[in-house]
Amino acid sequence: MSPVSSNQPIASRPRVVHFSSVHSADDVRILHKEGKSLAAEGYDVNFVVPHTQDEERDGVRIHAVPIPKNRRERTTRTVWQVYRKVLGLKPQVAHFHDPELIPVGMLLKMRGIRVVYDVHEDYSATMMDKEWLPLPVRWLARAGVVGFESAGCAMFDQIITATEGIAERMPPKKTVPVQNFPMLAEFPTAGGVPYSSRDNVVVFVGGLGLIRGAKEMVEAIQLVPDHLNPKLLIVGPLEPPVSPEWIAAIDVKKRVTWGGVKRRHELKDIFGVARCGIIAFLPLKNHLNAQPNKMFEYMAAGLPLVASDFPYMRKVTDGARCGISVDPLSAQSIADAMQWIFEHPAEAEEMGKRGRAAVESEYTWESQRQRLVACYQRLTARNGAQILSQHA
């Protein structure tokens, strides 16, 4: 049974406040997975975030702070506004998602609030990927991030990480990985265009910039033979310098469409017309063991993968036999994988089916939701060691 009942008045439920200064109000992990899962368990779930208005979505109340105009404003004024808003909500548990909010987490902890640090990325690794900085500066920045996180983690009640790799560098006694596996209900296998009848469309979903292989993907689709009539569909926000004009300048054969930003419920229709999903992240340190949401979402939708040949992604694609690993720095390598999928539709469809089966058996959000709920049962129990109830 659940630790709390959703039929209780809001005032009597444990109040949880997620907060972020960086992410959007529609963030998949924060809102759609963690927030909605906790609301379904009966918690009073709130989300403080830069947004245009206060609103409620599926039991999660969104509390807006002004959207910052630039990074400097975000790391100063926005951080302060987020802190004041969270404090005013008087949470039992405060759950934050950005390293720049570690000082806010410390202040809340000193006020007796239980604090959760949700680590989405290996932030120390990202410091080493900033190639515009001299190497000694990068090492100093990395050491600073490690020290900053260590000081905060020593104070916080719970550390949640998006991957098992990140969890390995966190305090083991208070760290639980809650991975970004898909919610199967969002990706029904029924419906959509039958795979054998689909056009030769490659889909990329998510934020796209240079480090995520924008140039290589656009160049690759140009190299696929003309008789296959290949298309690349990009869905999600574009990160400068990538823009519709930037894409048009290198899309010499007019094969690329930017579909804009879509809502979650629209993804199943997009996936339902595609032949494969692509992840062509460049080989930055923070990417080598990444577990992109989109990889598992493509698999859940029954799409074969074209994925960067990195350790974790190869482990998934080889283990499930659900895709082709490519050199993300080689447009030709990417194009060859696309061409193979287009020219072998029966084999590609079987790849997609194996990917879906792997998600159903190994990579579902339900398994991670249970970990999240167990953490909150401990955090909101009168005795921190007591678990109010157990789920089967």
Rank of each mutant, 00 (worst) to 15 (best):
K173M: 07
K173V: 11
K173G: 12
K173E: 05
K173C: 03
K173A: 07
K174G: 01
K174Y: 03
K174L: 01
T175F: 02
V176M: 00
P177E: 05
P177S: 09
P177M: 06
P177C: 06
P177N: 01
V178M: 00
V178I: 05
Q179A: 08
N180K: 05
F181K: 02
F181G: 04
F181A: 01
F181E: 04
P182W: 08
P182A: 10
P182H: 08
M183P: 06
L184A: 15
A185F: 14
A185R: 13
A185T: 15
A185G: 06
A185Y: 13
E186F: 07
E186Q: 12
E186G: 08
E186C: 08
F187C: 07
F187T: 10
P188T: 14
P188V: 14
T189W: 09
T189D: 11
A190C: 09
A190E: 11
G191C: 03
G191L: 03
G192W: 00
G192F: 00
G192M: 03
G192P: 02
V193N: 05
V193E: 07
P194K: 00
P194D: 02
P194A: 00
P194S: 03
Y195V: 09
Y195T: 09
Y195K: 04
S196C: 09
S196H: 09
S196D: 14
S197P: 08
S197R: 12
R198G: 06
R198C: 01
R198Q: 03
R198K: 07
D199A: 15
D199Q: 15
D199T: 13
D199H: 15
D199V: 10
N200Y: 12
V201T: 05
V201A: 02
V201M: 00
V201Q: 03
V201G: 03
V202L: 06
V202A: 03
V202N: 02
V203E: 04
V203L: 09
V203C: 07
V203N: 05
V203I: 15
F204C: 09
F204D: 09
V205F: 01
G206E: 12
G207D: 11
G207V: 14
G207C: 13
L208K: 12
L208Y: 11
L208C: 11
G209N: 05
G209R: 04
G209A: 04
G209T: 09
L210E: 10
I211F: 11
I211V: 14
R212F: 15
R212C: 09
G213H: 10
A214M: 07
A214F: 04
K215D: 08
E216Q: 15
E216I: 13
M217C: 09
M217T: 10
M217V: 05
V218S: 01
